[in-house]
């Protein structure tokens, strides 16, 4: 019986992230529109967009190969699995030990690898520009992310995300310089990874500064729907990550009562709403930077992460 419940809760988490992801994207868009004094679409608009895209036929370029058609499913699968492995409303779920934080970062890397390849597949200049810039950004964002992982796992003594979240709930954490550095670096990485302003502009088209949108320019129909959904899942993943590490309060632990789970879900929704609001606020208050300033932005994130890890290495007494 307990095992069935465990499977159920794990399944709920998988479905929850999938269903919430478009809502989060819509929420950020609505807030952004209202901050700009526009009425903006309803937060439910991404669902309608996805349904519309799914029902349309897929238009493929003549030079597109099988990889171009398989890539959206691979990207979606990798991001869905990664997002479902980050603790959302409860920690220590049935399969939480499948992949630790390093593996989750690497799963994001897998998705990016295939997205960049898909950008090169049709053989257009826009696809190439997107892929090459995406890989440049990733070559700095990924090491920065791993440095953050180092900091967290040195503090918590584990790379398991559930265990880190549980550790963060205990009193022995306290206020630490390393944690502050890691938080700052993680926010910077999250902005870059999700193609948000100031690194990339999610709302732009036909502009030479775009990165993510340039890669997916040739996609249409169900393929585009999957890629959009995957992008929403990635945003959700990073907000869940920030939530479960830095504001873990309210999260249930596996095997608790249903009320605890419900409180966990409510807390999780609150965290997402707060995170989305702050993201929209940040995006409206800053201008996009040009591409070759991104390396300085992310280089700073890498240095912050390294500094955080180094402080812990040095302060560890034996």
């Amino acid at each position: 019986m307990a095992l069935i419940t465990d499977y159920l809760v794990q399944g709920c988490q998988m479905l929850l992230v999938l269903l919430l992801a478009p809502l989060l994207t819509g929420w950020v868009r609505t807030i952004k529109a209202q901050l700009l004094r526009r009425r903006g679409p309803s937060p439910l608009q991404p669902y309608r967009d996805l349904l519309k895209l799914l029902r349309k036929e897929a238009l493929l370029a003549d030079s597109a190969s099988w990889l171009f058609r398989v890539a959206p499913y691979l990207i979606f699968a990798a991001l869905w699995v990664a997002a479902a492995l980050v603790p959302t409303f409860a920690s220590g779920l049935l399969f939480s030990w499948t992949a630790d934080l390093i593996a989750i970062v690497a799963l994001l890397g897998s998705a990016r690898f295939f997205l960049a390849l898909a950008g090169l597949d049709v053989g257009t200049s826009f696809g190439g520009i997107g892929s090459s810039r995406e890989m440049m950004i990733a070559s700095l964002a990924e090491p920065a992310m791993l440095m953050i992982v180092f900091t967290l796992s040195l503090l918590a003594g584990t790379t398991e995300l559930s265990a880190i979240a549980q550790f963060m709930l205990t009193a022995e954490v306290g206020l630490r310089v390393s944690l502050a550095l890691a938080l700052l670096a993680l926010i910077m990485v999250a902005i870059a990874e999700n193609a948000r302003i100031p690194v990339d502009n999610p709302a732009t088209h036909l502009e030479l500064t775009m990165v993510h949108e340039a890669m997916v320019l040739e996609y249409s129909g169900r393929h585009l729907a999957l890629i959009e959904l995957a992008a929403s899942l990635k945003l959700l993943l990073y907000l869940s990550l920030l939530g479960c590490i830095f504001i873990p309060w309210g999260m249930a632990t596996a095997g608790e009562s249903w009320t605890a789970y419900l409180i966990g879900v409510a807390a999780y929704l609150g965290k997402l709403a707060l995170g989305g609001f702050l993201l929209a606020l940040f995006e409206t208050s800053i201008a996009k930077m040009r591409v070759f300033r991104v390396d300085q932005f992310l280089g700073a994130a890498l240095m912050l992460g390294l500094l955080g890890a180094l402080l812990l290495f040095v302060s560890r007494s034996r």
Binding site: L54, D62, S125, L217, R222
Partner: peptide, 26 residues
């Protein structure tokens, strides 16, 4: 599993039509 479920559901319930054309490239 997730890739196969997505592919199955989309091809079954939504659209599986494909049309070839020249690349768009903005």
């Amino acid at each position: 599993f997730s890739g196969a479920v997505a592919a199955f559901l989309i091809h079954r319930l939504a659209s599986s039509a494909v049309r070839r054309g020249p690349a768009w490239d903005c």
